[in-house]
Design a protein around this nucleic acid. Structure first.
Length: 533
RNA sequence: GCCCCCGUAGCUCAGCUGGACAGAGCAACGGACUUCUAAUCCGCAGGUCGCAGGUUCGAAUCCUGCCGGGGGCGCCA
């Protein structure tokens, strides 16, 4: 709010200076001594105004000083022509009130339904084995992204696409059947130890494909359950074969003239849509390739009314993006309605030693094993520490530890401490007076203001996290908030001897605001906010 | 050969649509506990932002090339 008020005042000042229609950006200076807010408009519009930046800035400042902007204490010109605003602490007291009034439900939230209707597809690993730690990165990312998009006003559905037919599943079934029959696993089969376990587990007479795929799916669901990730929809590829959706999609593509027959196969003219070669939709043996059902699936999603599809894939599927987008475009959709986010690979270590591929699966360590070792909260928080664009190295020993170098612990600790203060106040019989009756102006210490300043950033942070599909920005923020709160906790007692009652009251509300911020930050990331540790 | 991601402090990483002397955590060193969780806090130290050009009043940020690391280029998924 203060941001808009300042921007409006600057805009008006520019108009009065005869420089209309300028976009005014207000930024938070990197350094506190540059003020609470700053703008570079004078630099940015100097050329257009035909004036020198500092001179233009001076003119703006002169007008602002008489404009009566709330909370504004001082305006200065700095460097080549930045305008810096210094505000009275009262602007942060207003932030406190705002945070408390919005509470955990609404803090950082935009108007519900103001955005898109989005389908976030995540993981979609073949039901041929357990999820591993790499899948988990994508799952944690996608789930947090879905939370962020929901909070910023979108309607979001989480979906898992199950490849419950096709070559991979056949191979899987043959591997299970071989184990059951006491025969060696086929050359091209699945070789992990879980195949031996599952093969032995399979009841006699069971259809290895049906049984195996249900077994794998149960494993996958169980893993996600433990991470606290819930799908709104498990979409079965097979269901499309049953409803004829795949045939319809092919017919649709034929009608659009983007399909041709050659060499006994049916091809999609994907080169018309940016692909580097055309792709086979139906093989010469009459079977579909994976891409046709995938196009049909995306067609189905559009048919269900989503106006934006976000697919989260692992790095090993990046080569697939162009042809999938081509498929969507071939259906007549704007390719921008399908957005694919790629998560880069994860490398696991234990005390600096690389964790070798799991014997059980022949791939990365399993998700459930990781949760057993470090817990669900640490798994989720760790995966959300950094951008998905870069490879990640995770040391399991570090994130399993309840120590300072474990960031999830640090943030949860801040939340637990906030709760502990509230418990303390309650046990001392201190009644919290209504916020409106409490004098917040006693909150002037830098420790207190730092917490509020951090809280004041959240609306921008979550908006940017949503826009850039970057949940890690929320992680960075909540770590900073936690740091500010630990500092406050250490230096400013809320309850105790020698603390005036009015200060206790104001600080109790500060604690509540911080608690809301920490709970919302952690909640959006899918990480628990415990009241005690 | 072509495509994608990355290359910032000893280590792991932030750095917003380009902006003011490049930030955090860990590790190292030095401090701080009679009161709400010291599982914390404070201080000090540490960087040619891979390299070379370009655009700009201004580049870690945008563009080009090169070097290095990772991933991908099937009538597999």
């Amino acid at each position: 709010m203060i941001r808009e008020q300042l921007a409006a005042a600057v805009r008006q000042a520019l108009v009065d200076e005869g420089v209309p229609d300028v976009e005014v950006h207000l930024e938070r200076p990197a350094r506190l001594e540059h003020g609470d807010w700053s703008t570079n408009v004078a630099l940015a519009s100097a050329k257009r105004a035909g004036r020198n930046p500092r001179e233009l800035a001076a003119a703006i400042v002169a007008r602002l000083e008489s404009a009566g902007v709330p909370h504004l204490r001082e305006v200065e010109i700095a460097g080549p022509g930045f305008i810096n605003f210094r505000l009275a602490p009262s602007w942060l007291h207003e932030v406190l009130t705002d945070v408390v009034e919005r509470g955990t439900e609404a803090f950082g939230a935009s108007e519900p339904g103001s955005g898109h209707h989005i389908c976030v597809e995540m993981i979609s690993a073949n039901p041929t084995g357990p999820l591993h730690a790499g899948h988990a990165r994508g799952a944690c990312y996608a789930d947090a992204l879905a939370n962020i998009l929901t909070r910023t006003g979108n309607r979001v559905q989480r979906e898992y696409y199950i490849n419950d037919r096709g070559t991979q599943l056949d191979v899987f079934a043959r591997s299970l059947a071989a184990v059951r029959a006491g025969e060696p696993i086929p050359e091209d089969g699945y070789g992990g130890e879980y195949i031996l376990e599952w093969g032995a587990e399979m009841p006699p007479g069971a259809d290895p494909l049906e049984w195996g795929y249900q077994r794998a799916l149960a494993e996958i669901r169980g893993g996600l359950e433990r991470l606290g990730i819930h799908m709104d929809h498990w979409f079965s590829e097979r269901s499309m074969a049953e409803t004829g959706a795949i045939e319809q999609t092919l017919a649709d593509l034929r009608e659009r003239g983007v399909v041709y027959d050659a060499e006994g196969a049916v091809w999609l003219r994907s080169t018309d849509f940016g692909d580097d070669k055309d792709r086979v939709l139906v093989k010469s043996d009459g079977e579909y390739t994976y891409i046709l059902p995938d196009i049909a699936y995306h067609r189905d999603k559009f048919g269900r009314g989503f106006d934006l599809l976000i697919d989260v894939f692992g790095a090993d599927h990046h080569g697939y993006v162009t042809r999938l987008k081509a498929g969507v475009a071939a259906l007549g959709h704007d390719p921008d309605e399908l957005e694919v986010r790629i998560t880069q690979i994860v490398r696991l270590e234990r005390e600096g030693e690389e964790v070798k591929l799991s014997k059980r699966t022949g791939e990365l360590i399993e998700l459930t094993a990781m949760i057993d070792e470090v817990g669900a909260d640490a798994t989720r928080f760790t995966y959300l520490l950094q951008s998905i664009d870069s490879q990640q190295t995770v040391d399991l020993a570090v994130i399993a530890a309840n120590t300072m170098d474990n960031p999830v612990f640090y943030v949860q600790m801040a939340h637990a401490r906030a709760c502990s203060i509230q418990r303390k106040a309650a046990s001392e019989g201190i009644a919290t007076r209504p916020l409106g009756e409490v004098d917040l102006s006693v909150l002037t210490g830098e420790r207190e203001l730092a917490v509020l300043r951090s809280l004041s950033e959240f609306d921008e942070v979550i908006a940017m996290a949503a826009r850039e599909r970057a949940p890690h920005k929320v992680t960075t923020w909540v770590r900073e908030l936690a740091a500010a709160f630990h500092g406050f906790f250490h230096d400013r007692y809320v309850v105790g001897e020698g603390i005036p009652p009015e200060v206790t009251q104001a600080r109790l509300w500060l604690v509540e605001a911080a608690r809301v911020g920490l709970a919302v930050g952690l909640g959006v990331l899918g990480v628990g906010a415990p009241e005690k540790l």
